[in-house]
């Protein structure tokens, strides 16, 4: 990795942390530069606007989550097991590096106007959505998951996980997030699996 790429990645990680601690609107470009010990002028060499930084961040966090799901997709196991692994990794990420999911749930989904030019449709979250497509397509092809519209399945899976991470973030859950992993995975599998003809 060259120096500039390395620096860029550091900026992205720092911004994610700041956004998740202080909030997206409350954090300014100079705040990030300061945290990075960079001059504001130099900082703008990396990102010319907060909008372009915001868009790069969603690509970056989508890539992180995408890579995680990809590692599960590449394993040789059935859909039930894959669901368990995805849920467990997702919750682990929510606990250990909450800034990735926070950014997606609190910034990307809530502030679509920032993303409308440059992140149309799935452009910036393609790496993550693609992995979910592969997971679902494969499950149906193998006869393990019920065939349905992609979005009804995707919404059920990711909406459920997102909701849990949100509840956890609001400190509403009565137990630690990872303890819910098994039940949540079970519920998702029950909802998505092929039903034997009765």
């Amino acid at each position: 990795m060259d120096k500039k790429t390395k620096k860029t990645e550091l900026i992205l990680e720092t911004s994610l942390l700041l956004f998740s601690q202080k909030g997206f609107y409350a954090t300014t470009m100079p705040d990030i530069a300061k945290k990075m010990n960079m001059s504001v002028g130099n900082f703008y060499n990396y990102f010319s606007s907060k909008e372009s930084l915001a868009q790069e961040l969603i690509r970056y966090s989508s890539d992180k989550v995408g890579a995680m799901i990809r590692s599960v997709n590449e394993e040789d196991c059935d859909s039930k097991e894959k669901i368990e692994k995805i849920v467990s990794l997702y919750f682990k990420l929510a606990v250990e590096k909450p800034q990735y999911l926070d950014y997606f749930l609190r910034v990307y989904l809530a502030n679509k106007e920032i993303f409308k030019d440059g992140c149309e449709g799935m452009v910036c979250v393609a790496s993550f959505v693609t992995e979910m497509m592969i997971f679902f397509e494969d499950g149906v092809r193998k006869g393990e998951l019920r065939d349905q519209n992609f979005f009804s399945a995707f919404g059920l899976f990711m909406g459920y996980l997102g909701g849990f991470v949100f509840l956890n973030g609001e400190n509403i859950l009565d137990n630690n997030l990872e303890s819910f992993s098994k039940d949540v995975a079970f519920n998702i599998y029950q909802a998505l699996k092929v039903h034997e003809a009765s």
Binding site: M133, F136, L145
Partner: peptide, 20 residues
Amino acid sequence: KKHMSLPSAPYGISKRAYYS
């Protein structure tokens, strides 16, 4: 023929490449 409304990928193109 689709699985979860996803068509098969074109010949010799990985699902990952095609779906993204």
